[in-house]
């Protein structure tokens, strides 16, 4: 698996898109810092961009890589290598190279600006950790879709729909339900509903770390009580890990029955 990982990272590092992605984050980092002139504010703006964009890029990259390397994967499948190792190598390769683009692209401007002298270093680190999780989660979800859809166009469509659902529609449904059941205590419900969407979970996690809970009213207080504690933090990280582990297990399950 390490060999496949090595080659898929090598392949991706030579592709134009990794650099475009890296340069995009580099530019974003510099622009935000020099426009805001404040690391804290930059982290918040960055969060808003990252929480929507990272899943989108992860999804598109994952699905594109799968379909584009189909013939090459077939070449690998004929070699004496275990099936699951081929796909796990590719999966980790994509997720890692995306994470690398992100961490370097954002890390450099923030370090240049003087991150180490600022109090925002923990918030910023949390942001990077969450974004890395989102990369791993959405590439895994994209691989799940790609493995069950032969048709490239359909697969692409489903992947985008999945992203749209988790990034936009889910929030809408969530809000509607909050308004509809306004008369009931919704703290627990919101908390659980948040867990079922990695994007929401990441957003809330960062928002609360940045101490914006007052904006969220009573629910915010419930959230704060949960996420603010070490227990909440561990729980959220655990749920984010589950969001990686379960799709990855499902990839391996699908692979056992898949024809190429």
């Amino acid at each position: 698996m390490l060999k496949i990982l090595k080659y898929s990272i090598y392949d991706l590092l030579r592709s134009r898109w990794s650099y475009v992605y890296f340069l995009f984050y580099l530019l974003l980092g510099f622009v935000l810092l020099f426009l805001n002139n404040d690391v804290n504010k930059a982290v918040i703006t960055l969060m808003n961009v990252i929480i929507v964009l990272t899943p989108l890029i992860g999804t598109i990259f994952g699905i594109m890589y799968f379909y584009n390397s189909k013939e090459f994967t077939e070449l690998l499948l004929a070699q004496p290598i275990k099936r699951s190792n081929i796909f796990m190598g590719q999966y980790v390769g994509i997720s890692l190279s995306l994470t690398l683009s992100l961490v370097l692209g954002l890390g450099i401007p923030f370090i240049v600006y003087g991150l180490f002298r600022s109090a925002a270093i923990f918030d910023f680190t949390l942001l990077l950790v969450v974004a890395s999780f989102l990369n791993f989660i959405f590439v895994a979800l994209a691989y799940n879709i790609a493995l069950s859809t032969e048709n490239k166009i359909k697969g692409f469509g489903y992947a985008i729909l999945m992203w749209l659902f988790l990034a936009v529609v889910y929030d809408g449904l969530f809000l509607i339900s909050l308004i509809a059941f306004n008369d009931y205590p919704l703290g627990k419900f919101s908390l659980i509903a948040t867990m079922f969407n990695p994007i929401d979970l990441s957003r809330i996690l960062i928002l609360l770390k940045l101490d914006f809970s007052a904006l969220l009213g009573y629910t915010g207080a419930v959230f704060k009580e949960f996420f603010g504690t070490a227990f909440g933090m561990v729980m959220s990280m655990l749920v984010l890990s589950l969001w990686v582990i379960l799709p990855v297990l499902n990839i391996n399950r699908k692979l056992r029955k898949k024809d190429f």
Partner: peptide, 16 residues
Amino acid sequence: WDYRNELNYLPQIANF
């Protein structure tokens, strides 16, 4: 999977 070490395969479409 290890039996494939004793086997050489030329796939139909060469797309690398």
